[in-house]
Nucleic acid binder design. Sequence first.
DNA 1: CGATGAATTGACCGATGTCAAGTGGCGTGG
DNA 2: CCACGCCACTTGACATCGGTCAATTCATCG
Lengths: 231, 231
Amino acid sequence: MEDPLINMLASNNTFGGLSTAELQHVRSAGTMRRFEPGSFILRQGEPADNLYLMFCGCAKLTHVTVEGHQILQRFVRPGDSYGIAAALPGCEFAWSLQAIDECIMLVWSSEVLAELTMRYTTIMRNMLRISLFRRREMNQRYLALRTSNVEQRLAQALLQLCQEVGTDTSEGCIIDVTLSRGDIAEYAGASVYSVSRTLKRWERQGWIRAQRERITVLRRQSLQDLLGVAV
Amino acid sequence: MEDPLINMLASNNTFGGLSTAELQHVRSAGTMRRFEPGSFILRQGEPADNLYLMFCGCAKLTHVTVEGHQILQRFVRPGDSYGIAAALPGCEFAWSLQAIDECIMLVWSSEVLAELTMRYTTIMRNMLRISLFRRREMNQRYLALRTSNVEQRLAQALLQLCQEVGTDTSEGCIIDVTLSRGDIAEYAGASVYSVSRTLKRWERQGWIRAQRERITVLRRQSLQDLLGVAV
DNA sequence: CGATGAATTGACCGATGTCAAGTGGCGTGG
DNA sequence: CCACGCCACTTGACATCGGTCAATTCATCG
């Protein structure tokens, strides 16, 4: 099985569990689309009419509140999908997806998706699993906001970023995405100023290197320790 | 169609959309169970091996964090169901469900549920819808914690409680469940003391009546106004 | 080399949690 | 039936985290 897309679908959490023949059908039912860096692939509030699978590139999933707060939810990277809501009629996207670099995505319209889910019930099951997982993730974030302080939330945020978009080197883990302090603040649930102060302190301790819009985590363990034994 | 259970299933968000014959099958596949007031119907961390539908009674859905914080998520009342995770193998319950009064519930084991979802794909679709809805709800709570103050969150909490478990009278809306200040605090994301102070202030203003473990909202509109125009 | 926007830093303050000391209502047992 | 004690609740004093504002420094790009 040489086709990288089929491989990707096979290991994708939405389409995992289907046979190769079925995956080929799924693949042919979707269309490839390309998005410019910085462009919005989809915006919150729009009707959820497509399911998207990232083939290559990286995008960020954000939400803007009525007060103007921007919340960075997570990154969508090769193999990740977004748009489960498209499987249900009448849904809207709750988040916006913005391309960071150039993105190539495989896209299924909700009509096509309806056929696919009808034919392959595994897809529906997978989607339910994903949704439950995300709910717990969201719940974790809520709890973190209630029970942890800024320092802990920031440590957790950096560790998550390492996992999601990090590149390990001999020195440490480079968070390989341009992220302003403001972005990080939104991600961790804090103000720019608190983030700046905390990062600076960690840098003085040699735990991280903090550059302009780029961070390298040198000592993951030290950050891990901040979270407390129970996490 | 006189059977109250079938009626309940028909309007339930998990089984809605099935034909009467199908509902009868669904119903006969489940078993009725009774739970004592105060007893735990299920506990967080247990394998999710059952789906529960409340027939009569009321239960509360809570989560205890590693730090010992208790989070009140919501109430489960007649017609509500809990345990979507039982439709997927290997899941655990993330919340505990505790009976407030005596509860009569219709219960389906995960094996039976697997058959039902296989046969009636609508159920799977419904579950996905529910899960997405809950996710957004969770997201709303997260945002409230980040952008609103204690007073606003408390107002929102009371209004939600009115909707969920309130009984309207000529005076106002009685929140018809014994809820300590501590419970309310956990629900709104605040300390007991802040809750006590705020409630007392509202009582002096004549917006509510605050008794021991019982609250009556006299002026919903005043609370509503606190939330700001944008909500 | 200047302009621009990111990042830092210090001073300040306010919302809210914590602690400690009451107060009051309700149930129980003598 | 009364008194005691328990527990929910209240209230005041206080501490503090972390947000806001303002001023400054720094890096990057044209």
